[in-house]
């Protein structure tokens, strides 16, 4: 299965461990991810707050670059997923916007006709590879590992159609396909604060505290997520959450692709596990070693 791969800026920097694990598991799962040549930033939430048409235009450049390959575009970042999809959707729905975007792209020698499908890597892992195939490739079953599946916001909202906006299930099924238990986690789509961590730190820390507390009280050994910003907020800021909220959270926050990699028997250095700010805890290590 071949796809056009759009990593996004975070995956090349603060989330480079996500990229490492994707690189490691893709060949085993039969995924061929060909990186889009010379892609630019999708605009995320910040660009849209300042300039609307410009943010759609920079996003559309990526779609225009991808169109000649006639393949689905796959991104591991939830913000990129949302923005590229939104551009695609509004391009089709609003003729005025379509016309202006067409003119803007033309100025750069590009054109776009709206025929690209943008998908999240979770969608591909769940629908194209599938839990059954993943399960059959598992070398180390993660029996006994209790995992809180944290989806965050922008992969399920606004509705993109591949999973439920309030109670998504795709990642739960993938976790179970590895032999682990996906715990009941009602906060799975509650916001972590996203970029408010930069501007309104106390607020975002409290949102994260709620998520960490919820996962721990559900008896989870670790949290698994799929969004660079969610992972950074819950992992890198966990010590700060503890200071502000007077808690003693110590729960590793992994990318789903890292968890899959562990179960596929890949060495931890190939999966970027050493780059986690909250190290794998003893119970997790024991389960992983015993697996």
């Amino acid at each position: 299965m071949k796809y056009t791969y759009y990593p996004g800026c975070s995956v090349k920097a603060t989330a480079n461990l996500y990229q490492e694990s994707i690189d490691a598991i893709s060949p085993i799962l039969g995924l061929e991810l060909e990186e889009l040549e010379d892609w630019n930033c999708c605009g995320a939430t910040a660009y849209m707050s300042v300039k609307e048409l410009m943010s759609f235009a920079i996003s559309a450049r990526n779609l225009a670059l991808a169109e000649p390959f006639h393949r689905d575009v796959v991104t591991p970042c939830s913000a990129c997923y949302l923005v590229l999809n939104k551009t695609n959707q509004y391009f089709t729905e609003y003729p005025d916007l379509r016309k202006k975007l067409g003119q803007a792209l033309e100025a750069g020698g590009l054109s776009y006709s709206g025929n690209i499908r943008v998908r999240h890597i979770l969608d591909v892992l769940f629908n194209d590879v599938g839990p059954e195939k993943i399960s059959s490739l598992v070398k180390k079953r993660l029996d006994g590992l209790r995992v809180a599946p944290y989806y965050g916001c922008q992969i399920v909202r606004p509705e993109m159609g591949f999973d439920d906006p309030d109670d998504p299930q795709s990642m739960d099924r993938l976790i179970e396909s590895l032999g682990a238990t996906s715990v009941e986690y009602p906060l799975k789509t509650k916001c972590c604060g996203a970029s408010l961590m930069g501007t309104e730190e106390d607020l975002a820390l409290r949102l994260c505290c709620e998520l960490l507390t919820g996962a721990e009280s559900a008896g989870a050994h670790c949290i698994v997520t799929l969004c660079p910003l969610c992972q950074m907020n819950l992992d890198v800021y966990q010590s700060k959450v503890n200071r502000l909220c007077r808690m003693k959270h110590n729960i590793p926050v992994l990318y789903i692709t890292q968890l899959i990699g562990i179960a596929l028997g890949l060495p931890s250095k190939d999966l970027g596990l050493d780059k986690l700010a909250v190290k794998l805890t003893k119970p997790v290590k024991e389960i992983l070693q015993g697996a």
Binding site: D38, L53, I58, A107, G108
Partner: peptide, 26 residues
């Protein structure tokens, strides 16, 4: 310290194309 913060930016090759697009939007 975890190697998650690159010091140098990556500039896309065809930045002129992006700028032309932005200029047109302007």
């Amino acid at each position: 310290s975890k190697g998650r913060l690159p010091l140098f930016p990556h500039k896309i090759k065809n930045i002129d194309q992006l700028r032309k697009i932005l200029k047109k939007v302007d």
